[in-house]
Design a protein around this nucleic acid. Structure first.
Lengths: 156, 156
DNA sequence: TTGTCCTTTGTTATAGTATAACATATCCCC
DNA sequence: GGGGATATGTTATACTATAACAAAGGACAA
């Protein structure tokens, strides 16, 4: 599995692998990996960029699906609920998970130049502070904005 | 300074202290702490909860300010730009900073029961992973949802 | 003093994000 | 072939945010 969406790689492999993992996960858990849900995941997988719901919606419309907001949002809810995609809160946008099925605490590195988003593993980001406060953590969002290696090189 | 908005405390002291710090910071940096900006900060300081821009707007209207969106958003932009308030991305809402002026990397603990938000210090949440990826971090968002001590006790 | 620059606030309009509520369809299983 | 569960279609609306331009006021120099 790639550690970073920043480094060049065979992206068609990325796509195939993730779709395969999604199929396997849905089969294992008795979930329906319907054409709509599959198509939304494919759209997200076109690149390591976060897409807004309405951007996804446009592409769905081109494929003959209903181009109304709930269509996209419901598919995204399914994908995020099962760890196949994540919402990037800073961007109000969505991205395919790069290692579905594996338990993880994702952190995202968002390049503000090229808009590429890389998913990495977050260390215990709030664990100690939460413990000290007596706070019981359910989910953690960790997102960093900045500049990816390629864009640092391109704009010195 | 309180480590947590979860523990009971003298909140009027909270308010006075933060407003004082804001005044001092603006005086020091040559910024204009106008009545509008001050009022928005006061509104945010009414409790340790995040408020939406339109919620703030309603209260501004009651005080004779223009109740149009840019009024609130511009004040919030000023406050967040200078570290006097923060945006909670998970909630699309805003909260007063509990220790303005001090350099910090805030992390937020969001109670999904009572909606209280506590600000704590984030450890280097993405440092190692970013370094490994060659990513240059500009800003980091760390937000955890969960249950605060009081709500854990109330709903066992 | 008045004219110009700059910052802040007011105002109008619109863009972008998300969900509620109800209708229809499909499939599985009995 | 009827009943329940799940998924999708459809309509309407709520919520969040910004662009663009107008107007008010202070600071400061000519």
């Amino acid at each position: 599995m790639s550690q970073s969406g920043f480094t060049p790689h065979d992206h068609s492999g990325c796509i195939a692998q993730t779709l395969g993992a999604a199929e396997a996960l849905c089969a294992r858990e008795g979930l329906q990996f319907t054409p709509l849900r599959r198509r939304v995941l494919e759209i997200l997988l076109t690149g390591h960029k976060a897409l807004g719901a309405y951007e996804i919606l446009d592409r769905l419309g081109a494929d003959g699906f209903s181009a109304k907001p709930p269509t996209a949002y419901r598919a995204l809810e399914f994908l995020t609920a099962h760890g196949l995609a994540h919402k990037i809160e800073r961007l109000n946008a969505y991205i395919a998970c790069t290692h579905p099925g594996e338990a993880h605490n994702p952190a995202f590195l968002i390049c503000t130049d090229c808009e590429t988003v890389a998913e990495t593993e977050a260390p215990a980001a709030v664990g100690p502070a939460a413990k000290a406060a007596g706070f019981k953590v359910k989910a953690t969002t960790v997102e960093a904005t900045g500049t990816c290696p390629a864009c640092q090189a391109a704009r010195p």
